[in-house]
């Protein structure tokens, strides 16, 4: 009896191994997303190969410093302090911190404040800072990521979630989303988004890699001017949030650098490959 049991167990394991072998390794390299498509366009324009490396977001600076990746290109919000430790490109996309509520509720910004409603945010995010600044008396629940903040909202643990408007818009509309039609962003009387703060996305390289970032800036300006960037943005409904000032009347930077400063780009050009760190999240990389 026991023996037959073991035989069955062995059979199941053999089957599982067979299935795993059949399914093959899950190739999760993203093909869609604004940043992925833009990075691909950049690599093509610059004549190098793009290698996407999956990273953990909280270790992005470590990944860059250790040289495991060349660029962070993943919807990274630019903060003033970042300039001390990283080289940062010109801003390329605008993002807002939106107050997200359930679609059947009519909570207003004033009510959040006066009723001290509970708020969920991503720990360490721009939304967390905005929550503490705007609603100092509310209880702020800090969760691991933005989708968890929405899950808190859906579960009814909190009344408000403060996250990126870019992501909130996507999750509220995507067919497969658990939040489709269930969440909305608080708007002003005229229907426009009532944003708590506005920030900009940038691309980062290791401190000192001036040549690399100059080349990123130059190439992005080229992609803007030949219409490629707008074309990609239109796929995601981003055409209005491109930071046009970064790319209009652009003066090229790379030519003006010294030979020593150009070295970081020359090294990548030599290898013929650039390694870009990413994490998967829609609609930036998925």
């Amino acid at each position: 009896m026991k023996n037959r049991f073991l035989k069955i167990a062995a059979l199941i394991s053999a089957m599982l191994i067979g299935i795993f072998a059949f399914v093959g390794c899950g190739n999760t390299a993203p093909t869609k997303g604004y940043d992925i498509e833009l990075a691909k366009a950049f690599a093509e324009e610059a004549g190098i190969e793009l290698e996407l490396v999956k990273i953990e977001w909280s270790f992005k600076e470590t990944e860059i410093s250790s040289g495991n990746i060349d660029l962070i290109w993943n919807g990274m919000t630019i903060h003033e302090e970042m300039y001390d430790n990283l080289e940062i490109s010109n801003p390329y996309l605008t993002n807002n911190q939106a107050m997200v509520i359930k679609s059947d509720s009519n909570i207003t910004k004033e009510q959040i404040k006066s009723q001290k409603l509970k708020i969920a945010v991503e720990n360490g995010s721009a939304g967390a800072a905005a929550a503490e600044e705007n609603f100092p008396e509310s209880e702020v629940v800090k969760v691991a990521d933005q989708i968890s903040a929405l899950t808190e909202l859906k579960a009814g643990n909190v009344q408000v979630a403060i996250i990126d408007s870019i992501m909130a818009g996507y999750y509220a509309a995507n067919d497969e989303s658990s939040f489709k039609g269930q969440i909305k962003m608080i708007t002003k009387a005229d229907g426009s988004l009532d944003a708590l703060t506005t920030e900009e996305y940038g691309i980062a390289a290791k401190k000192g890699n001036v040549g690399l970032i100059a080349m990123v800036n130059d190439t992005l300006a080229k992609l803007y001017q030949n219409g490629t960037m707008t074309e990609i943005a239109e796929k995601y409904g981003f055409e209005k949030i491109i930071v046009k000032e970064s790319f209009e009347n652009y003066v090229t930077q790379y030519d003006k650098l010294s030979e020593a400063e150009k070295a970081s780009w020359e090294a990548i050009k030599e290898k013929g490959k650039i390694r870009v760190g990413y994490t998967l999240f829609a609609p930036i990389a998925y």
Partner: peptide
């Protein structure tokens, strides 16, 4: 292993959530 971005089970599930919005 997901702290360094290895695509193991948990992180893959999280990625599906992050890309589709489905939480199950």
């Amino acid at each position: 292993a997901n702290v360094v971005g290895i695509a193991e089970i948990i992180i893959t599930a999280k990625d599906i959530t992050n890309t589709t919005g489905a939480i199950w």
